[in-house]
C-alpha cells in the first residue's frame, strides 16, 4: 500500500497512463481530453454560433463521465493517498523558484499555494496566468486538434506525423513562455 501512497516513480506513472488508454480503447473510445471543451460548448448551445459545434455531442457523453471520474480520482488521491513527503524537485529548479519569488514547496502541496488561490485573481499576474493561460489552452488545443493525451501520448504512440508536429508546437510555446515571457510576468 505504501507504494501507492508515496509519489509514483515516473516509469510506473507512464505504465498506468497506457493502462488507462488501453481501457478506453477496449471500451471503443479514444484517449483525448481536450475534446471535452468542444463537447461542453456544443452542449451549451454553441452550435447556433458556429458549425464547429454543430455535431452529435451526445456521442461524446462518455467523455463527460470520464471527466467526472477524473475529478473524483483527484479527490481520492488528495484525501486518502496523500504523500507524507514534500515533492521531490531538482535542486536546480528549487533555486529557480527563489528567482521567481516563490516559496519552497511544502508537504501536502503539489502546487505553489501562493499562486493557486482566488486572491491571485485580484492581481495582474493571476489574471494573466489563469484567465489568459486558460484561454490559450482552450483555443490552442482545439486548433491543434488535441492536447497532451490526444497528440503527445495517443498520437505519438500511433506514429502520427501531425501529432509530432503538434508536440513540437507545444514545446515552442512552452519554452517561449517559460524562458522569455514568464520572467516578465513574475
Amino acid at each position: 500500500m505504501e507504494f501507492f501512497i508515496q509519489s509514483w516513480h515516473w516509469a510506473f506513472s507512464g505504465v498506468m497512463i497506457v493502462f488507462v488508454m488501453m481501457l478506453l480503447l477496449l471500451a471503443g473510445k479514444r484517449f483525448g481530453v481536450s475534446s471535452s471543451f468542444q463537447a461542453a460548448c456544443a452542449m451549451g448551445g454553441a452550435g447556433k454560433l458556429a458549425s464547429y459545434f454543430k455535431y452529435d455531442w451526445k456521442s461524446q457523453s462518455w467523455l463527460f463521465l470520464f471527466v467526472a471520474g477524473s475529478i473524483i480520482g483527484g479527490f481520492i488521491a488528495n484525501n486518502f493517498m496523500q504523500s507524507s513527503e514534500v515533492i521531490d524537485l531538482s535542486d536546480a529548479f528549487l533555486k529557480d523558484l527563489s528567482v521567481l519569488g516563490l516559496d519552497q514547496p511544502v508537504v501536502g502541496h503539489i502546487n505553489p499555494k501562493e499562486l493557486f488561490n482566488f486572491d491571485m485573481l485580484l492581481t495582474t499576474k493571476g489574471i494573466i496566468l489563469f484567465v489568459l493561460g486558460g484561454f490559450l489552452i482552450g483555443f490552442g488545443t482545439r486548433y491543434a486538434g488535441g492536447c497532451t493525451s490526444g497528440h503527445a501520448i495517443s498520437g505519438l504512440s500511433n506514429l502520427q506525423l501531425p501529432s509530432l508536429v503538434a508536440v513540437i508546437g507545444f514545446f515552442i510555446g512552452g519554452l517561449l513562455m517559460t524562458h522569455f515571457i514568464m520572467p516578465l510576468i513574475f
Partner: peptide, 13 residues
C-alpha cells in the same frame, strides 16, 4: 498542429 500547438504550449507553461 504547429500554430495551435504553440498557442497551447504558452498556456500549458
Amino acid at each position: 498542429a504547429l500554430l495551435g500547438g504553440s498557442i497551447f504550449g504558452l498556456g500549458w507553461s
